[in-house]
Design a protein around this nucleic acid. Structure first.
Lengths: 335, 335
DNA sequence: TTCATTATTGCATTCGAAGTCATTATTACG
DNA sequence: CGTAATAATGACTTCGAATGCAATAATGAA
């Protein structure tokens, strides 16, 4: 039934008594082929186990049908589901995901060259940091880029992002019900754009509402860093009334540390809020008050924008901001 | 500096005053080129922004340099980090990940065709179920396959897996310190091979040690299903002394449900063990006693085997079983 | 039935790099 | 210095499908 060597369109053509062009046309949608040849070709193709070679097709059509998805190690911690969502939604648009991981800035040049080499139709960057200089490179080579979970106004790329400003405003409003006297902002790492954005928004909003006792600490988004930061803080200071964490993992870490090592009751002695709506933050031992990101919609927006950009390269960059949902958990004191 | 159209090796050749072959050779490692031409070509290539076209290279060399990684939605829940590990380790072997998601069995045929079309060098399947019939298909088309986290003796594919038998034996030994009178085995879904394996191993081991009061319930690996199953059980039965969960998420669900809705103290009233060593199961509110899978080593084994198989297609199928590490948490009563 | 129109078909070319082979330049050494 | 061995180079072909174009077949209108 099938031989060692791969079956090509020529083999099928010969066997079916038609030209190679005919075979090709049968496997492209919407091309003019008579029902008779179509049936004949299909039959022999199936019999011989023929599949069109996507590589050859890519070469001639200059469309690889692949989208590079760049995942920073950070993104992986925070959104385990994003990637499969992206893959699924791109598959629905008949595109595949070519996966790249990005850890350190040094390899970014390399990554860029790799991506160019593979002739991808576009790029989706998950929570990865890109200099605007690099975005310019992509633009120069006509590679559409969508930044997921970034919100940079001057971007040369499309961005999709959940509304941090609004979300954090809601979280702070929740906290303010108790009129806390002092705040601790537990930020993500300084080299994370999202962390910086969330932190600055929080600080600005607190300043606006004349909250004067605000301190900042830096973690790395991990559970352990949440614990460590709180422990470090408590060595020199009393427990703050309210802690604003840049993500849920750190919030959970803070809660565990407070309870286990410092006999601090959450939420009675201290209120904690997170961000993201990560599944485990809703587990009943934590029930973190947080903003749940509209994951599916975010991914859909990213994919839509990318496809639009691929099909119409001239369309101007666009920033989509979706609204997250406030989850009222049990980590903020209720009066 | 760079024009609209893509720069090809011919363009560089013309500009540098050499032949296209020369340009090609400069960009392949280990080929005979004089230092002079190499420098000249490199310089003009950089000036013109030339990158070799991987698609064209794939076509002629018949090596795509891409590995299809198939992720079932289930795998994603259980091992958020596996995928980036796979990508990283494959990148180190100069291969890229082409990502495919597999949800329902219906799409499996489609998936297979897709994979063939893309001429991937090999396949790694993460916790996905494949009929041996399908494995035969892959074999027939000379596509090397590695099954991650599966242990099927008669496989036509390579497999890598953590030692379930040993791990579960250790977990049961932990539980037996308290001489529990009855057991509840909380299995993963029936259509998961891993779940079935873990369940049957547990049941067999319990039978061997003459434990007679053993019941089984089926969840879907999720936190919520852990909660639901326990709740359902407690409606008609008293709390079991020991619960063996097929993964950590369900164990955490069980713990939360027991504490929150049934005033059952873990571990004093009931012991719970999980499997996987999922990060959040070690959070101090849970501290699930479990087996930690040696993730990096598992992935490394999978990648090694795949590369070996790609380079040497005749090498016989191999099954690698790595030993997990017992994590003594705080979810099993200590005498 | 005849001619115009449209639908099918095949031929030949194309995409861009890699590799084969024959040729030329270089080096080594007697 | 001459010759053999080796290194470097370029012309040409190849991979497999897609497509423009011309030729042919099928259809419809008159």
């Amino acid at each position: 039934m099938n031989k060692d060597k791969k079956v090509t369109s020529y083999d099928v053509a010969r066997e079916a008594g038609v030209s190679q062009s005919a075979v090709s046309r049968v496997f492209r949608p919407g091309l003019s082929v008579s029902q008779k040849t179509r049936d004949k070709v299909m039959e022999t193709a199936n019999k011989m186990g023929y599949r069109p070679n996507a590589i050859a097709r890519m070469l001639i059509t200059k469309q690889s049908g692949m989208v590079a998805v760049i995942v920073s190690s950070r993104a992986n911690i925070n959104y385990p589901e994003v990637l499969s969502q992206v893959s699924k939604q791109l598959a629905a648009r008949n595109k595949r995901v070519l996966l790249f991981t990005l850890d350190d800035a040094e390899s970014a040049d390399d990554l860029f060259e790799q991506i160019r080499t593979f002739q991808v139709d576009g790029v989706i960057a998950l929570a990865a940091h890109f200099e605007s200089q690099r975005l310019a490179q992509f633009k120069q080579h006509n590679i559409p880029v969508v930044l997921y979970n970034r919100n940079v106004p001057d971007a040369m790329a499309n961005t999709v992002c959940c509304n941090h400003e609004l979300g954090i405003k809601q979280l702070i409003a929740e906290l303010q019900i108790n009129q806390p006297k002092n705040y601790l902002v537990l930020s993500g790492p300084k080299d994370s754009d999202v962390a910086n954005e969330r932190r600055e928004i929080a600080l600005n909003l607190l300043k606006k509402s004349d909250e004067n006792h605000v301190s900042v600490l830096y973690g790395d988004y991990s559970y352990q860093s949440g614990r460590d930061c709180l422990a470090k803080w408590l060595k020199k200071h009393p427990a703050p009334d309210a802690i604003i964490c840049s993500n849920d993992s750190m919030a959970v870490g803070v809660i565990d540390e407070a309870r286990e090592n410092h006999k601090i009751h959450i939420p009675n002695d201290m209120s904690v809020v997170g961000f993201d709506g990560y599944a485990s933050s809703s587990w009943s031992s934590y029930q973190v008050t947080t903003i749940k990101q509209p994951l599916e919609q975010l991914v859909k927006a990213a994919v839509d924008m990318l496809i639009e950009r691929i099909e119409n390269p001239e369309s101007p960059p666009e920033a989509r901001v979706l609204t997250g949902m406030l989850i009222k958990g049990n980590s903020v004191r209720r009066p």
